[in-house]
Amino acid sequence: MSALTIRDVPDDQIQTLKIRAAQVGKSLQAYFLDLIARETSKPTLAEMVERLNRETTASISTDEVLAAIDAARTGR
């Protein structure tokens, strides 16, 4: 596992993070690990768009769609 150093974090932000960590009963390190885990488990917008394009792209022609509609209407 790697170590991570963040420089030049304003004191007020550090204080806020310490308070939030304490409110959930965690050390600052554990709180940050949870934040990082949550952030990295969510797909980015670009990843979601790519996934949606991949999953919603149909390789079916208009004629095939119309034929399926006609077949469904005939079967009523």
Rank of each mutant, 00 (worst) to 15 (best):
G25E: 09
K26Q: 11
S27E: 07
S27N: 08
S27G: 10
L28A: 08
L28D: 07
L28H: 05
L28F: 07
L28C: 11
L28I: 14
L28M: 13
Q29K: 11
Q29D: 11
Q29I: 08
Q29C: 09
Q29H: 07
A30T: 12
A30H: 10
A30N: 13
Y31M: 00
Y31F: 10
Y31H: 06
F32Y: 06
F32E: 05
F32A: 04
F32D: 01
F32Q: 00
L33Q: 03
L33S: 06
L33I: 14
D34I: 11
D34L: 15
D34H: 13
D34A: 14
L35W: 10
L35V: 12
L35E: 07
L35R: 10
I36W: 12
I36A: 15
I36R: 13
I36S: 13
I36F: 14
I36E: 13
A37T: 13
A37Q: 14
A37E: 14
R38L: 15
R38W: 06
R38C: 13
E39C: 15
E39D: 14
E39S: 15
T40Q: 15
T40D: 15
K42M: 15
K42L: 15
K42Q: 14
K42P: 02
K42A: 15
K42S: 14
P43A: 03
P43Q: 06
P43M: 05
P43V: 02
T44P: 01
T44H: 04
T44N: 07
T44A: 08
T44W: 03
T44Y: 05
T44E: 02
T44G: 01
L45M: 12
L45R: 05
L45A: 11
A46C: 11
A46I: 02
A46K: 08
A46M: 09
E47D: 10
E47F: 01
E47N: 04
E47H: 05
M48D: 07
M48A: 13
M48N: 10
V49M: 04
V49S: 04
V49G: 00
V49E: 05
V49P: 02
E50L: 06
E50W: 03
R51D: 03
L52V: 09
L52Q: 04
L52E: 03
N53G: 05
N53Q: 10
N53R: 04
N53V: 04
E55C: 06
E55D: 14
E55M: 09
T57H: 10
T57I: 11
T57N: 08
T57F: 06
T57R: 09
A58L: 08
A58N: 12
A58Y: 09
A58P: 01
S59I: 08
I60V: 13
I60K: 05
S61E: 03
S61A: 00
S61M: 04
S61L: 01
T62I: 09
T62Q: 04
D63Y: 01
D63S: 08
D63L: 00
D63K: 03
D63A: 06
E64T: 04
E64K: 07
E64C: 07
